[in-house]
């Protein structure tokens, strides 16, 4: 694991996600203004900023989840592993397999625990029951949920606690074997204990996945992330190693936000 005491240097990492001059519009309202940033592979990048600053919108441009909003429009480029995902002819289905997502409000399907995790592999063509069982077990183990649910895989997922539901959603996202995991305030609806559990989990997953997490909780950003991007009013104000952002911000706005002068 990376030594957090020492500030990381962006130059030391492979860059997996790049956005170039990204503008985003909801109808006539521009929500993102010229975002250019490169996020490193197998690291945790936190997106912070006051509500309405565009951090969630930006996150959702990375797997084209904004496509489902009527009137949404994107300009500029998002490159994932060097390929522009907004290029004409991009297979959105393939993209979303590669770029998984966990939502703010845990949203397990009202099916069994097993069926929840098996859902992704199933729609992508895995039919073999044993193979599915293996994927389900592996994903639940990675999400740290296996020990708690292994005896009741056929129970309805809605019977789990809030924290367990969110970890189930993480397991479900892992089951399609993504490279990148986008997390939209994954712990904001959880109690402190469950939050700690999810944060620990993020620490474990960073070895395997590139993680981008939106959070409104600065302590959480400081605890879990390696890099931090600060958004304000739809623009990217500052992007740097988390440690630097929190100890020595370059921009006045970042400093004001971090020291709690607004937000």
């Amino acid at each position: 694991m990376v030594d957090k005491k020492q500030a990381l240097l962006l130059e030391d990492f492979d860059i997996e996600i790049v956005s170039r001059d990204l503008n985003f519009y909801y109808g006539d309202n521009q929500a993102l203004f010229g975002i250019s940033v490169g996020m490193p592979a197998k690291q945790v990048t936190a997106l912070i900023g006051p509500s309405g600053c565009g951090k969630s919108t930006f996150l959702r441009t990375l797997n084209r989840m904004n496509d489902i909003i009527p009137g949404a429009r994107v300009e500029g480029q998002v490159l994932i592993s060097g390929k522009d995902i907004y290029q004409h002819g991009t297979d959105v289905v393939k993209l979303r397999r590669k770029v998984g997502m966990v939502f703010q409000k845990s949203n397990p399907f009202p099916k069994s625990i097993f069926e929840n995790v098996a859902y992704g592999p199933r729609i992508h063509g895995t039919r073999d029951r044993q193979q599915l069982a293996a994927i389900v077990e592996k994903s639940l183990v990675r999400a740290g949920l296996w020990e708690e649910v292994k005896d009741r895989l056929n129970d309805n997922a809605l019977g789990l606690s809030g924290g367990q539901q969110q970890r189930l959603c993480i397991a479900r996202a892992l089951a399609v074997d993504p490279q990148i995991l986008l997390m939209d305030e994954p712990a904001s609806a959880l109690d402190p204990k469950s939050t700690a559990r999810v944060e620990d989990l993020i620490g474990e997953l960073r070895e395997l996945y590139t993680i981008v997490i939106v959070t409104h909780n600065m302590q959480q950003a400081a605890r879990v992330s390696d890099f931090t991007a600060f958004f304000y009013e739809g623009a990217l104000v500052e992007f740097n190693a988390t440690k630097l952002i929190f100890t020595n911000p370059k921009e006045k706005q970042t400093e004001d936000y971090i020291t709690g002068r607004f937000g």
Binding site: M65, I68, L95, R97, K105, N107, G120, I123, R172
Partner: peptide
């Protein structure tokens, strides 16, 4: 709930799926 649709799409399901 909208969350079911989003979760399913985010897993790479097509709209009709």
């Amino acid at each position: 709930p909208k969350g079911y649709r989003e979760a399913s799409l985010a897993l790479g399901a097509t709209k009709w799926e």
